[in-house]
């Protein structure tokens, strides 16, 4: 099992896509943090886009946008599995380790750890940026412990999203289909639910992730509390992981 996990870590570190995704995630985080901070209180003539930073919700939105790159972490996980199909490396992987459940488990572990690494890198860049942008203007002060909790929430959410990605990849197998499907789900379906039916949306994976990042919906509707939100996301990850392990065990590799 140690060897398998080591192998999966080596796969990740010897894939150029890892670095590309990591850099993209940092750009995305910086972009969102900056946009939320600058749009707060900005009036384009037709009214304010967002309330100014003196309003609690606006400040919280800046900090919760530190987790914006969870979509990229999801893609990272998806690629972690689907590239084995795309490049036909699954054959060698399963020849060396015929117990596929162990292979998937090793992928969950390695990608979960890398999800944490994504979060750390994003926080190292994004958190000082957010603090600076907020503190350089009149703003509502939220407790430091809340900011720390957001950072923890981002970290746990990224780990779970990476695992969720691996599981989705194992279920769908086709790389393009899995990525496009996941993006459509996150950016359109979940976004629509959260905007129109927030009481349903908050129970979806992105809703759960948002709760961990202590986000506030635009209409002020509240997500779950961070802890139950985290448990909900964990349940999604486990459910997908179990189904993915089951289907992967049964599939012919030819």
């Amino acid at each position: 099992m140690i060897g398998l996990i080591k192998s999966e870590f080596r796969k990740i570190s010897t894939t150029r896509m890892t670095l590309i995704l990591l850099i993209s995630s940092v750009f995305l985080t910086a972009l969102y943090v900056t946009l939320y901070a600058l749009l707060a209180g900005y009036d384009n003539g037709t009214g304010q886009t967002l309330p100014p930073l003196t309003v609690e919700m606006s400040v919280r939105m800046v900090y919760s946008s530190l987790g914006s790159a969870y979509i990229i972490v999801l893609v990272f996980g998806i690629i972690g599995f689907t590239q084995e199909i795309r490049h036909r490396t699954a054959t060698l992987t399963y020849l060396v380790s015929p117990h596929r459940g162990q292979v998937i488990f090793a992928k969950f572990v390695s990608h979960g750890v890398w999800g944490i690494a994504f979060a750390v890198v994003n926080l190292i860049v994004g958190l000082p940026l957010a603090l600076w942008l907020v503190n350089s203007r009149p703003h509502f002060d939220i407790p430091t412990s809340d900011i720390i909790n957001v950072a923890l929430g981002v970290t746990v959410a990224f780990a779970l999203y990476a695992i969720l990605g691996v599981a989705i990849g194992a279920l769908v197998r086709n790389q393009i289909a899995a990525i496009v499907g996941a993006l459509v789900w996150v950016m359109i379906i979940e976004a629509v639910f959260i905007a129109i039916l927030p009481n349903v949306g908050k129970w979806m994976p992105a809703g759960a992730a948002s709760s961990m990042m202590q986000a506030r919906a635009l209409d002020g509707a509240k997500y779950l509390d961070p802890f139950p939100g985290g448990l909900l996301l964990l349940s999604y990850a486990i459910a997908f992981a179990v189904i993915a392990t089951f289907t992967t065990n049964r599939r012919d590799v030819s």
Partner: peptide, 18 residues
């Protein structure tokens, strides 16, 4: 069945690790 972006050595190392 090899990852095109990995070197020959790394493709085999991935197997050796496992």
């Amino acid at each position: 069945g090899f990852h095109p972006g990995r070197t020959g050595f790394n493709n085999l190392m991935v197997m050796a690790d496992a």
